[in-house]
């Protein structure tokens, strides 16, 4: 069953069976492997992408529900080699260890920064509670988001 969507500004048409997840389309059909598969049930946020302005877990979002939607993945954050402020902050603050959760955190935090006027540490932590990290203990991820939120 065909569906068309725009991913990171690029139109795409794929033909997958109903019940296929958006994550499978991104990784297996479109080769966008930056978005990660971890828990397969919306518990960890590693597959967070933005669909029509809403951050969601692509591992439990039906691909055909995203027909005609605009999708933003980690690959669409930077403009070419030009990192976003948040990506740069992640690099600087030590927010990345193994990095497997990083794409999900970046997409989620990008959304938080775009939709909130200002963010307290508590709000950042709440907003990122749906993203699990097993390496960092979160402090340096929170640091990076706060640094950008403050316009540092």
């Amino acid at each position: 069953m065909e569906l068309s969507l725009t991913v990171n500004g690029q139109p795409a048409v794929v033909d997958v069976p109903p019940g296929t997840t958006l994550l499978e389309v991104l990784r297996d059909e479109l080769g966008l492997t930056g978005t990660k598969e971890v828990c397969d049930e919306g518990e960890c946020g590693a597959c967070t992408v933005i669909v029509d302005g809403r951050p969601l877990d692509a591992c439990i979002y039906a691909a055909h529900a995203a027909d005609r939607a605009e999708v933003l993945t980690v690959e669409g954050l930077a403009a070419g080699d030009e990192l976003t402020d948040l990506q740069r902050a992640f690099v600087e603050a030590g927010s990345v260890q193994c990095g497997f959760c990083t794409p999900g955190f970046l997409v989620m935090a990008t959304h938080l920064l775009e939709t909130a006027a200002e963010l307290s540490e508590e709000q950042v932590r709440r907003g990122l509670a749906g993203n699990l990290c097993r390496c960092t203990g979160y402090a340096q991820i929170v640091d990076a988001v706060l640094a950008v939120g403050r316009g540092a």
């Binding site: 993945t73 980690v74 690959e75 990192l83 990506q87 690099v91 600087e92 990345v96 990095g99």
Partner: peptide
């Protein structure tokens, strides 16, 4: 010093 693999990891380009 920022880690050498950080840019690949924040852009989704790192191949796991």
């Amino acid at each position: 010093v920022p880690r050498g693999d950080a840019v690949a990891k924040v852009t989704g380009r790192a191949v796991y």
